[in-house]
């Protein structure tokens, strides 16, 4: 029976593919337009590279692509991460019956002190990455991930400290809100979401790039707190 079904499936697919190729031509109606449009097709990379700095004032063109030209995608991606964190919390919070097999063995003094010493430095590195995202490689996602790895270290080394999930929730909500509100201000000021409405500043200095660094900081905080809350949830210390 199973073999019969899979055989017939294969037959259907083969039939489909042959059908497709028998009359394989696409976009018949578009053909007349194509000739006209094909000439003025633009190379996006070149266009962004040559005009990105003047249009957005961010030295790192990738940052202006991520936050400005394709900023709407970034908003969506931040949301995807948010959903992952929330969804994980949903699934884990309903399965409380089996407590995580965590043996609360305190870390040795060396590890404990080392973690406490490294944690602020990691946070500093992470914030550096997302604050300078418009100047150097890196940005909100990368910086946020580094920040979250700091929280991971706290969990691994200083288990007694515990990770407060309320703090994550507040940071996550506020930075997400900041992103949306900044985007909406662009809509209100210039009629288009995510418009870079602030003065661009002089290129390659910290205060340049209009809203890009501000949004990057919001993304960094949001990603950091989302990944942090995922770690807190998985480590079983969240309420």
């Amino acid at each position: 029976m199973r073999r019969l079904i899979s055989l017939s499936l294969l037959l259907i697919v083969a039939l489909g593919i042959s059908l497709c190729f028998s009359g394989a031509y696409f976009g018949a109606e578009g053909a007349n337009r194509a000739g006209k449009l094909a000439q003025d097709r633009v190379n996006f990379g070149q266009r962004y590279n040559s005009r990105g700095l003047e249009e957005n004032g961010a030295g790192n063109i990738v940052a202006s692509v991520v936050v400005n030209y394709r900023g709407f995608d970034t908003l969506g991606e931040v949301t995807v991460l948010f959903i992952a964190a929330v969804g994980l919390a949903v699934v884990l919070s309903t399965r409380r019956e089996k407590p995580a097999r965590v043996r609360a063995e305190p870390a040795s003094l060396v590890v404990f002190t080392g973690c406490r010493f490294l944690f602020p430095l990691i946070l500093l590195l992470g914030s550096y990455i997302f604050i300078h995202g418009h100047l150097t490689p890196g940005g909100g996602f990368q910086g946020g991930a580094v920040v979250a790895s700091g929280f991971l270290l706290v969990y691994l080394g200083c288990r007694g400290k515990g990770l407060r999930s309320a703090g994550f929730t507040v940071t996550e909500s506020l930075s997400g809100l900041a992103f949306v509100v900044l985007a909406l201000v662009g809509l209100a000021v210039g009629g288009s979401l995510l418009l870079n409405f602030l003065p661009k500043g002089s290129a390659l200095t910290l205060f340049s790039g209009g809203v890009i660094p501000i949004i990057y900081v919001a993304i960094g905080l949001k990603v950091g707190s989302e990944l942090g809350s995922i770690i807190a949830n998985l480590s079983g210390e969240a309420p």
Binding site: G76, E77, V80, I83, V90
Partner: peptide, 27 residues
């Protein structure tokens, strides 16, 4: 690509919501 991003938003939130009750069948 934006279509894909929103599609992911739709799908990932539905994965989590399907498992909402948390009994073994829904998980």
């Amino acid at each position: 690509f934006n279509l894909f991003v929103f599609f992911e938003i739709l799908c990932i939130s539905s994965y989590a919501l399907v498992a909402y009750w948390g009994d073994s069948a829904s998980v």
